[in-house]
Amino acid sequence: MLKIKNLYATVEGKEILKGINLEIQEGEVHAIMGPNGSGKSTLANVLAGHNNYKVTQGEIIFEGKNIFDLSVEERAKEGIFLAFQYPVEIPGVTNYSFLKTALNEIRKQNNLEEIDSKEFMDLLNKKMKILDMDDVFIQRSVNQGFSGGEKKRNEILQLLMLEPKLALLDETDSGLDIDALKIVSNGVNVFRNKNNAVLAVTHYQRLLNYIVPDFVHVLSKGRIIKSGGKELALELEEKGYDWIKG
């Protein structure tokens, strides 16, 4: 599904990614772990196409297509979804209209008609139940006044509604207490199927107790320096990142 070949990227002239190689197949969950400043979030943002990040070398092939020239929204419509570390607030725009607009953009891409209101509400209620979200949420402004946990839940709700092919989770566990972590992780597990994939970027191993990865990659100074199975995460937790860097 995703092939990253020798990827270099800079932000404000500073090279952050220095030759990333990674391949993700349908049905897989990959975790990218690494110390602060190793380039984890940069990788997620580069894949999403953020303007502040410049790809200077290498290729990103998504579903057999080089996405270098695709804009952020085109990539989104192709099925790349980024669950934000810090979701932004959009005052005055209800979650309802935001989610419906986004869903219809994706549907349009897939030559589907706009979803009717009844069908949309049924779908939304179903997904909200998975995340234990209250009804009032629908009419609240996007992320405005949300607690850290609510914002993260909202990200996963969008994931469940939009059903992308590839979910990039950027530090989705940060700022969550254990109950919220379980709910959010459960949401991601509900999303998972044999046709989609997850790339979870995380500093801590604890997320991976709930979203069990097939592969774990350790990122350091812009390079993947070690890859392994889920047990690698546990080893890291125990020994710290210095173990691997040394």
Partner: peptide
């Protein structure tokens, strides 16, 4: 950041600005 967020959900920049301004005027 707001524009990026909305773009990432498949919403064009023009629609994103409209959405944000409409929200502001709600």
């Amino acid at each position: 950041d707001q524009i990026f967020y909305l773009n990432q959900r498949g919403i064009s920049t023009e629609d994103a600005v409209n959405m944000i301004v409409n929200g502001f005027c709600k």
